[in-house]
Amino acid sequence: MNIDALEKMLAKGNDSAMLRFGLGKAYLDNKKPDDAITHLQHCVEQDPDYSAAWNLLGKAHLQLGDKASAETVWQSGLDVAVRKGDKQTEKEITVFLKKLKK
């Protein structure tokens, strides 16, 4: 689904964590990290246990060059992933945090 279609769904009042995640990912893929952050932040506010959203939110902050925010967000996401047993996201975030500290 393209960004316009997702934005139309949101405009119709179909707000959800999954929709916000889709919008955040689409904007991130299109190199629009500011817009990605807006939607991914809404996503994790709606569903604080959405570990994949925390992961993308960290990536969006990193695209903006905001390493401090990326680290903070990824640490939150790592905590969620560990608690939920989301091994894939846990591994990804761990790698990103290690690279960030180099």
Rank of each mutant, 00 (worst) to 15 (best):
K99P: 01
A52T: 14
V95W: 01
G22W: 02
S51R: 10
A26P: 09
G58L: 05
T94A: 15
K31F: 14
D79Y: 10
A60F: 06
N30K: 12
L6H: 06
E7S: 03
A68W: 08
A17T: 00
Q75T: 14
L28N: 05
K98W: 04
V44Y: 03
D15A: 06
T94K: 14
K12R: 13
D79Q: 15
L40C: 08
A52R: 15
A81G: 14
T94L: 07
Q75K: 14
K102F: 07
K98Q: 14
A53K: 07
K32L: 14
D35K: 10
I93S: 08
L64R: 01
E71D: 10
A70I: 01
E45F: 05
K12L: 09
V73C: 08
N30C: 10
N14Y: 06
E71S: 00
Y27I: 03
G13H: 11
L28W: 07
E45D: 10
M1H: 12
A26C: 08
T94H: 07
V44I: 00
K25I: 12
D34M: 01
R83W: 02
A26I: 10
S76G: 09
E45I: 08
G22M: 10
I3Q: 07
Q46C: 02
K87I: 01
V73P: 12
W74S: 00
E92L: 08
L100Y: 02
G85I: 09
L97Y: 13
M9G: 03
I3V: 11
K12Q: 13
L97V: 05
L10A: 15
L40A: 07
W54H: 07
L6W: 09
L100E: 04
K101M: 04
D79K: 13
K8N: 13
D34Q: 03
S69Y: 02
L56Y: 07
N2E: 15
S51K: 09
A68G: 11
L19V: 11
K59G: 07
D66V: 02
D86F: 00
A81M: 12
L64F: 00
L97G: 13
L62Y: 01
H42Q: 15
V44E: 04
E7T: 00
H42V: 09
N55L: 15
M9A: 02
L6S: 11
H42P: 08
Q88A: 11
